[in-house]
Design a binder for these strands. Structure first.
Lengths: 210, 210
DNA sequence: TATTCTATGTAACATTTGTTACTATATAAA
DNA sequence: TTTATATAGTAACAAATGTTACATAGAATA
């Protein structure tokens, strides 16, 4: 674990902090689809992402979903951060989008290290910064863009985080992420195919020139 | 200033911190409409809100606006917090919705105090927590609600923060905040009036039983 | 008072998005 | 192979939202 840690967080954290993390942290490998955080659950650990992609979702009262953003290597979940303080419940759901490697930190350490290590403070603040900006980005998309543009950005983003120009999703899955209906997505995807931006297949979509 | 400070933040901060704030902070009274933070500007001060209401807005490339949330007594602006670290530009606009009293803190103190005072760290983290939750709330509204429900919530919220059941806004102003057109707002307001929830007047709206 | 400006009301229509229903086909299961 | 299920395509329609245009009335001002 210490090696994974150094490779991914060595430039961020002081040696003493890296040492502490390796002592109290737990290394885990989780599979695609693993539910890392559920709405309404209490947070006991803070995940540091070593590899893989995590999808962060919001849900409304009817159980309808909306994709908020993706977490990648070097990211951590801001919701975890804020939940550590107030003993509050999670407001979001986090699911491994791909197989992922993570280090779990007990939440008591979060506050302790914030007083002790400047690099930790910077990391935590920076994480908040990133998450807040991603939320702003999400707001921009849903408030200012129409569904066809949102879909296009979604496909780009998904292709980027998976580092693959083939998107393995059904129209229904995309519809859930964008909080619309399958028919709407099928209709818009067909338009994108007609103008040569993508090629549609059963269960996957090939990005051509977005 | 020290008295205003104690009244509003005395229960949050240690005495030594209150003392420091009163030494380096600047007390200001600003009028309604005062632009506290502009998109693209660099942040040099962090405002602690003593009284009044501040409106926080997002803007897209075409200059279209969207209300994010209101700040009230005891709040601070998270965007200021995050801008202090990376020397990054503001992503949002903050405007005094009412006359307001604030204490301005030089941003260098923010990081210094985070290492020094536990109460300051808690305050900063709590502020992030509140702001992130407000952003989630905003996302919920624009993603999951239709315009009539958003309008209703807007009127309630506006009434709550101003502590007044008379809302002094034109339809056009409301349309800007909700990022829609004046005609749409007029249409929906008229419906609300017809079912007895509000009473419309020129330049103001009376909340009856929302 | 006459004029101008601003805010509001409303009709008519366009566009976007959501819904229902049905079809076709690939894949998985019996 | 036959059957069942999941996925996708598409038409037809409904609802929500956006746009244009114009009328009316209050408020401000010449």
């Amino acid at each position: 674990m210490i090696q994974e840690l150094k490779n991914n967080y060595g430039h961020l954290f002081e040696d003493a902090l890296l040492q502490e993390i390796s002592e109290v942290g737990t290394y885990r490998e989780v599979s695609e689809g693993y539910k890392m955080l559920e709405i309404g659950s209490y947070v006991k650990n803070m995940p540091l992402l070593i590899s893989g992609v995590v999808k962060v979702l919001r849900e409304d009262n009817d159980g309808d979903e909306l994709l908020l953003y993706f977490l990648e290597k070097g990211d951590t979940c801001a919701m975890t951060l804020i939940c550590t303080l107030g003993q509050t419940k999670s407001e979001i759901r986090a699911i491994a989008e791909t197989d992922a490697k993570i280090i779990m930190i007990p939440i008591q350490k979060m506050e302790e290290w914030a007083g002790k290590y400047k690099s930790w403070r910077r990391f935590v603040f920076q994480s908040y910064h990133n998450r807040l900006n991603e939320m702003l980005d999400t707001i921009d998309k849903i408030a200012f863009l129409k569904m066809d543009e949102r879909l296009l950005k979604y496909l780009k983003e998904k292709s980027r985080v998976s580092n693959d120009n083939i998107i393995k999703s059904t129209h229904q899955e995309i519809a859930y992420d964008l909080h619309t209906s399958r028919v709407v997505i099928s209709r818009l995807l067909k338009k994108l195919e007609n103008i040569g931006k993508i090629k549609l297949h059963r269960n996957y979509i090939v990005i051509k020139n977005i």
